[in-house]
């Protein structure tokens, strides 16, 4: 069993990280802190999940969110997608294992992966609307968000959602407010099977290893950890029974990375674009200095008069 994080002390304590611990800040150049705090991670063991949605409820509860009453279209997913209020969502897949012939119920807790290389943050045009703390948590700062939706284009996991109410972007915060005072995320605390565990990334990797060994001994020979290198790893990781096929888990990206289109847009385009605009203006300026204005002469006026006649 994984040790349960104890309840908080009643005495208020200072936040363990904050604005002084940033390693990235959207649309800003900052010097990352010299000394990173230990990287944290949430480990979601899909093989232990029973699909009870306690985590989904805990998330709404802790973050004071209300989801609309939905409609049943014959699947367990409820709501049907992430929304500005639903920052984490259980996605259910009925998978027929071709090898064993078994029907497997794959239940994946979807939400922000807290990428080490966050596409949302790199796409964001508003200074400080997205920040990354040195412990790896990627957080949206509502006060700075302008609601443009660039984060949606940047994210390889299709996570951020823009609220129709206040036009701000929302996603899982990894309960940065709880983690700052030594607590685990609300979802982790609520999970009755400890399918969700939380700690330093190193601890979580070690814990995952044990789980993977166990799963392999039960015949899941491709069991493994999902910590995708394409985004330099994530601070939310999965233990998957079939780590060779992430896609069967309700479309989990096989090899996520920031889209090359986004890299081109936020990379070369910016510098080439500004340079081109500058060069065009400079050309005009130089031309005017060298060639001088093109003036109508008296001769031209006389010719016009001659042509127009009386």
């Amino acid at each position: 069993m994984f040790t349960i994080i104890p309840n908080p002390q009643a005495k208020p304590i200072d936040a363990k990280f904050g604005d002084k611990d940033l390693i990235r800040r959207s649309a800003s150049s900052i010097t990352p802190v010299a000394q990173r705090q230990p990287e944290v991670a949430k480990l979601i063991d899909v093989s232990k999940c029973i699909g009870c949605k306690a985590c989904q409820v805990a998330c709404l509860e802790w973050n004071n969110l209300t989801e609309e009453v939905g409609v049943n279209v014959g699947v367990y997913d409820n709501p049907h997608d992430l929304t500005p209020n639903t920052w984490t969502l259980m996605r259910y897949t009925e998978y027929e294992n071709p090898e064993s012939g078994n029907l497997e119920w794959l239940i994946r807790k979807d939400g922000c992966m807290h990428c080490e290389d966050p596409g949302c943050l790199k796409a964001c045009p508003a200074p400080g609307a997205i920040v990354q703390y040195s412990n790896g948590i990627v957080d949206f700062v509502k006060a700075n968000c302008i609601g443009c939706g660039y984060c949606i284009k940047g994210c390889p996991f299709n996570i951020p959602r823009i609220s129709k109410v206040d036009n701000k972007a929302y996603k899982c915060t990894l309960c940065s407010d709880r983690v700052a005072v030594g607590q685990g995320p609300a979802c982790q605390k609520a999970c009755p099977t400890q399918a969700i565990v939380f700690g330093t990334k190193d601890e979580m990797k070690k814990w995952a290893e044990k789980r993977i060994t166990d799963l392999k001994s039960r015949g899941f020979k491709n069991a493994g950890l999902y910590d995708p290198p394409g985004v330099q790893g994530t601070h939310v990781m999965y233990v998957l029974q079939h780590a060779d096929k992430p896609n069967i888990y309700a479309g989990l990206a096989d090899n996520p990375r920031i889209s090359p289109i986004v890299e081109l847009w936020k990379g070369g385009t910016k510098y080439a674009g500004l340079a081109l605009i500058g060069l065009t203006a400079a050309f005009g300026f130089l031309h005017h200095i060298v060639a001088g204005p093109n003036r109508v002469t008296d001769h031209d006026e006389q010719e016009a008069k001659r042509l127009a006649g009386k």
Binding site: V296, T297, D300, E301, A304
Partner: peptide
């Protein structure tokens, strides 16, 4: 415009 401008 002036006639001269148009002519030119």
């Amino acid at each position: 415009v002036t006639g001269g401008w148009a002519w030119r």
